[in-house]
Simulated scan of single mutants.
Amino acid sequence: MVVGAGVVGAACAYYACLFGLDVTVVDRGPVAGGTTGAGEGNLLVSDKEPGPELQLALLSTQLWRDLPTSLPARVEYERKGGLVVASTEAGLAALRDFAAGQQRAGVEAAEVPADRLADLEPHLAHGLAGGFHYPQDAQVQPALAAAHLLRATALEGKEDGGDRGRLTLRLGEEVTAVLTGSGGAVRGVRTPRGDLRAPHVVNATGTWGGRLARLAGVELPVLPRRGFVLVTEPLPRVVRHKVYSADYVADVASGSAALQTSAVVEGTPAGPVLIGASRERVGFDPTLSVEVLRRLATQATRLFPALAEVRAIRAYAGFRPYLPDHLPAIGPDPRVPGLLHACGHEGAGIGLAPATGLLIAAMLTGREPPLDVTPFAPERFTGKADEKVRDT
């Protein structure tokens, strides 16, 4: 059983069914009704330093390309590449050092001198020191990605007739308890409509991953990190790549609770330009911040002066599932046999979803994971809670 119908939960269900397991996905709301639906759809390697998360991102990059050919077209998959720019020579030198480490880890990155930036982005501001092009960066429409992963899972399970598992989707059912047997092992979940039995429960509830963990009697310190996205009116393709300033990399790695904003600008196949990114820890407060939107607009127009004459038609907020060490929790929780976690991806959940789903499916079926899962072990966080419901 997978709790959570966002893109991570959908990917867990997809690969688990592919490996022959029957899967029930349960969510208190609709598909992509939480963090996934408020995301930009980034599939990035450019913002990740060498280490476990980058290896997870590289695996996911390949998986996004290898998903059935019918899927990417429906989810607006676009391998448009990323462009990271620096305004000073010192900033460019820092980007150069950062890219060198990434290249040794398997990332494709090429330096772009100042006089060639316009070849990639004709509308980019003049006077920048240079940048780096990352051709592996891509984008999907996140809500479509979650929906079509689940749709493909359901259709393939029905039509294949072979070893694939079957999908059951239960939306609008909030999990109120995790059921365990006398030995403490998971036996399913409880919802207002009754008990759902399963030998394994996958916690793919994103920002609410800590809540579900507490229902199972363990602590997982997932916290919400609010961010806003500003959306322009539809335009001709003014922005060709995902373009962001060097400051964005530092903001992603920061653990500060204070407000941080750094320009991230990208076009979409439908025409609107998406402008981010902001980060702040304010709990689950969804209040619109005019100051944040003003900062985002100002920083975006510094990168693309032509946007100063463009209308912003809407803005929306979302909550990234933040864990203190900036790594997701992926895998079985030894404190509660049968409980697995697949949450805490912060702002990278869309991009990391396929690799996360593949790892979870491998662990559920006793297969060798394609990479070392030790850094993502949920038990690296300690603590115990009391909210466990015994299965009677």
Rank of each mutant, 00 (worst) to 15 (best):
L54I: 05
L54S: 06
Q55Y: 11
L56S: 03
L59I: 12
L59R: 13
S60R: 02
T61A: 15
R65A: 07
D66L: 10
L67D: 03
L67A: 08
T69E: 13
T69F: 12
L71R: 10
L71Y: 11
A73H: 13
A73D: 14
R74N: 13
V75Q: 05
R79K: 15
K80G: 09
K80T: 12
G82Q: 03
S87M: 12
S87Q: 15
A90E: 15
L92C: 08
A93V: 09
A93H: 09
L95D: 00
R96L: 03
A100P: 00
G101N: 03
Q102A: 08
Q102T: 05
Q103Y: 04
A105Q: 08
G106I: 02
G106Y: 04
E108Q: 14
A110C: 09
A110H: 13
P113Q: 10
A114S: 14
L117H: 07
L117W: 02
A118H: 15
A118P: 09
D119L: 14
D119A: 13
E121G: 04
H123C: 10
A125G: 07
A125K: 06
A125E: 06
A125T: 12
H126E: 15
H126N: 11
H126Q: 14
L128V: 07
L128F: 06
G131H: 01
F132R: 00
Y134G: 03
Y134H: 07
P135H: 04
Q136T: 10
D137H: 02
Q139M: 12
Q139Y: 05
Q141W: 11
Q141G: 00
P142E: 06
P142I: 08
A143T: 06
A143C: 03
A145M: 02
A147E: 06
H148D: 11
L149G: 04
L150K: 03
R151P: 01
A152I: 06
A152M: 08
A152C: 10
A152Q: 14
T153L: 04
L155S: 13
L155G: 06
E156I: 09
E156M: 11
G157Y: 02
G157T: 05
G157F: 02
E159N: 13
D160H: 13
G161I: 12
G162P: 05
G162W: 14
D163I: 11
R164F: 12
G165H: 00
R166A: 09
L167H: 01
L169T: 02
R170D: 02
L171I: 01
V175P: 00
V175Q: 09
V175W: 03
T176S: 13
L179N: 08
T180E: 09
T180I: 11
T180A: 13
T180N: 06
S182W: 13
S182C: 11
